[in-house]
Design a protein around this nucleic acid. Structure first.
Length: 705
RNA sequence: GGGCGAUUAGCUCAGUUGGUUAGAGCGCAUCAUUGACGUUGAUGAGGUCACUGGUUCGAAUCCAGUAUCGCCCACCA
């Protein structure tokens, strides 16, 4: 053996051996309970980041542990088409390299090229997963746009539509002018922003009086169709029903009573812009008000904005304030902290505006999803997220599933060309034509990526077909993912899982935290603090990175990457290697501990080791992974190496004692390798091959008892 | 406005049914070294476990409150 663990040379070979041997593919054994994790599919187009390294490490540890225990263990890998992110990313490349937009290429060509791009990138992602040591079953690898997955998506959409759970609605959605699509409520991040609250006077018709309204968005006044006051507000009681003249526009608008208005805020009178504010939209519906759209999807003023048409929102705001000021209609302006919605993806300010979108009626889906968690059918680690989930689920609102994107599952709705009010859900154009009896055109929108992601635990197993995989491996065991996507993903999987299959999609939700840098900053490209996990693998080995990711972290709490820490665990991998090297030199071919005369020191060591086995097993079963890693690290290095081996050295040189001494060291080493294997799979496998595998068998020994 | 989390060594963090001298990594100090490993070993410095009160034979751990920081949710314009 070399005097160092040569991870650079060995890791690739070892991974290939795992993959080739077939151990990553479970054998279906009806007498055994399988252990199943569906991997959260990384975005196919993008390299893995350090957050992936964390989840890969945790999941691989869970998977390898159960595989070593002899359970049929499936870790199903895949990749996500990541609608918005991929499309926006590719559009940027297109712009940069060819100075073209997607419209220059047209839908078909754009998708064709993007698909090619994504499928190429996906290979890189898969290779990176291998380099991290992910022992997933590549024979079952999936992509969210695979034909069978798309088929399942269609099947679900159709079922939901037929059962009245999908409807089209024209209502306020959050629109991202940069991504050029509507978003769900979840995809909007609100940020405290310093703004101004402007008090504007709206004159009463045929009177010198006026009502003052307060707004943070003066430019939307062009789309005002009423002013609302609380019916109980004495100040305005006499004015309800009267008419105001909308400044700058000259339009007549009514004063209406609506209890959504808080009399204590501002002046107690609210300008109502149904097309550009969710609350106003509702007020508008209650009072049957018009909803003129004055801000367009490009975040510029529309033709309805008269002389302000074409101006960007902020420019229009400035101009309007100037004009109001000239007319003496601004009562005052005060500084005001308020929340402004930003696109979760690109950070652009979102515009709430009316548009036509497809929605999922969520109530009937949410109920069983609540129950499954309340009853404990699905458990959370750490427990506190159960409450977070329940709270969100109890207040859930309908889900906007349409996106004005090209990249994704195109909504399987077809309109009759001659009469667009007639449409049908169909698998393809031919079917649609048959059904509608004429030329058809497909809906332009695609489905929210999370719609297909929500089906992931079972589409990956062949559902809706009653495949052997689906019957045996579903429901899955663990869903391990980040707490930041509980609502986006976990909640949707639970709802759709119960809806589609009638069963929970998984029994346990294990949530990991966010990876931060050593200054406690979120890792992000814009902060320039990214650490490429593959760089770390190259420098210190995958085992070291894995240890660095999981040691000292508790479930659900944020974790820090620190190159020093990773370096330290490279030393640990090397320590394992050298302990083995020493034992292989001094006690090769050792006997079994059952066939030697154990000294009292030996029995003591073995007894202590048994305790360690129990402790590690207990911790693993409770998913205290960081704890189990720590126990093993401490034991192996500071007990086994520093004390057991050191103290045994003289006995190895003593002919009378060397048999027993060698047997004990080998026994402990061998079983330690098995227990360490989920954490540091490469070095343990390498050592195993050197010491305990005569013909290349891999570590498949049962977990020690 | 609600909810949650954090506060432990110079730094970043573990410490999950309350139990002897509170741990790790990095950093620091002294010493050792042709020895499985210097990617090492030994020894050591460094902690009023945020604060206050309570429960208990016993509290970093349980309870109540306070402070600071952070996160999430929410249609006050």
């Amino acid at each position: 053996m070399e005097n160092k663990f040569n991870f650079k040379e060995l890791e690739g070979k070892i991974y290939r051996a795992w993959e080739k041997s077939g151990v990553l593919t479970p054998k279906i054994d009806k007498d055994k309970q399988p252990y199943v994790i569906t991997m959260p599919p990384p975005n196919a187009y993008d390299r893995l980041h350090i957050g992936h390294a964390l989840f890969v490490t945790l999941e691989d540890i869970m998977i390898r542990y159960h595989r070593l225990k002899g359970e049929p263990t499936l870790w199903l890998p895949g990749a996500d088409h990541a609608g918005i992110a991929s499309q926006v990313f590719f559009e940027k490349i297109l712009k940069k390299e060819e100075n073209k937009t997607r419209y220059d290429l047209g839908r078909e060509e754009f998708i064709k090229r993007l698909r090619k791009f994504v499928l190429e990138k996906r290979k890189i992602v898969e290779d990176q997963l291998r380099r991290l040591g992910a022992s997933c079953d590549w024979t079952r690898n999936k992509f969210t746009l695979d034909p069978d997955v798309s088929e399942a998506v269609y099947h679900t959409f159709k079922k939901m539509y037929d059962e009245g759970l999908i409807y089209q609605g024209e209502r306020i959605v959050n629109w991202c002018p940069r991504c050029n699509t509507g978003l769900s409520d979840l995809e909007v991040a609100y940020q405290e922003t310093e703004g101004q609250l402007t008090y504007i006077k709206y004159p009463l018709q045929n009177s010198d009086e006026f009502i003052t309204v307060a707004t943070t968005r003066p430019e939307t006044m062009l789309g005002d169709t009423a002013v609302a006051v609380n019916s109980k507000d004495k100040r305005y009681k006499n004015l309800i029903g009267k008419t105001l003249i909308l400044p700058l526009v000259g339009r007549e608008i009514p004063i209406v009573a609506d209890d959504a208005v808080d009399p204590k805020f501002g002046t107690g009178a609210v300008k109502v812009t149904p097309a550009h504010d969710p609350t106003d939209f509702e007020i508008g519906e209650r009072h049957k008000l018009d909803a003129p759209i004055v801000v367009g999807q490009d975040a510029k003023m529309t033709n309805r904005a008269g002389k302000y048409a074409g101006l960007k929102v902020l420019d229009a705001r400035k101009k309007i304030l100037e004009d109001l000021n000239k007319s003496g209609l601004i009562e005052k302006q005060i500084k005001y902290e308020h929340r402004v919605g930003h696109c979760d993806r690109c950070k652009e300010v979102v515009e709430p505006l009316i548009s036509k979108q497809w929605f999922v009626k969520i109530e009937s889906l949410a109920k069983p999803a609540l129950e499954a968690v309340k009853s404990g059918k699905i458990k959370f680690i750490p427990k506190r997220f159960k409450k977070v989930y329940l709270n969100w689920m109890e207040n859930i609102r309908d889900w906007n599933i349409s996106r004005q994107l090209w990249w994704g599952h195109r909504i399987p709705i077809y309109y009759l060309k001659s009469d667009k009010t007639k449409f049908a859900v169909a698998k393809n154009t031919d079917d649609a034509q048959k059904e509608l009896g004429g030329e058809v055109v497909q809906e332009n929108d695609t489905l929210d990526t999370w719609f297909s992601s929500g089906l992931w635990p079972f589409t990956t197993l062949g559902w809706p077909r009653e495949t052997q995989d689906f019957k045996y491996f579903y429901p899955t065991t663990v869903m391990e993912t980040g707490y930041e996507i509980i609502f986006f993903w976990v909640a949707r999987m639970i709802m759709l899982g119960l809806y589609c299959t009638g069963e929970v999609p998984f029994e346990l939700v294990y949530l990991n935290g966010i990876v931060r840098d050593k200054n406690n900053q979120k890792i992000s490209k814009s902060k320039g603090n990214v650490i490429d996990p593959i760089d770390m693998v190259e420098k210190y080995g995958a085992d070291a990175l894995r240890m660095g990711m999981m040691m000292g972290t508790a479930p659900g709490s944020d974790t820090h990457v620190d190159e020093n820490k990773i370096r330290a665990y490279r030393n640990f991998a090397n320590k394992i290697w050298n302990a083995a090297r020493f034992i292989s030199m001094k006690a090769p071919g050792a006997k079994s501990i059952n066939n030697v005369n154990l000294s009292t020191a030996d029995t003591k060591m073995l007894k202590e080791f048994k305790e360690i086995i129990k402790k590690v097993t207990r911790e693993m079963d409770k998913y205290e992974i960081g704890q189990a890693g720590d126990t093993l690290y401490q034991y192996f290095w500071h007990r086994f190496c520093d004390e057991c081996i050191e103290n045994t050295k003289p006995r190895l040189e003593d002919a009378k004692a060397s048999d027993a001494a060698g047997a004990v060291l080998n026994h402990i080493l061998k079983n330690s390798l098995i227990m360490l294997h989920p954490f540091v799979p490469f070095v343990t496998e390498a050592v195993w091959q050197e010491l305990y595998s005569s013909s290349g068998q891999l570590i498949t020994q049962a977990w020690p008892q």
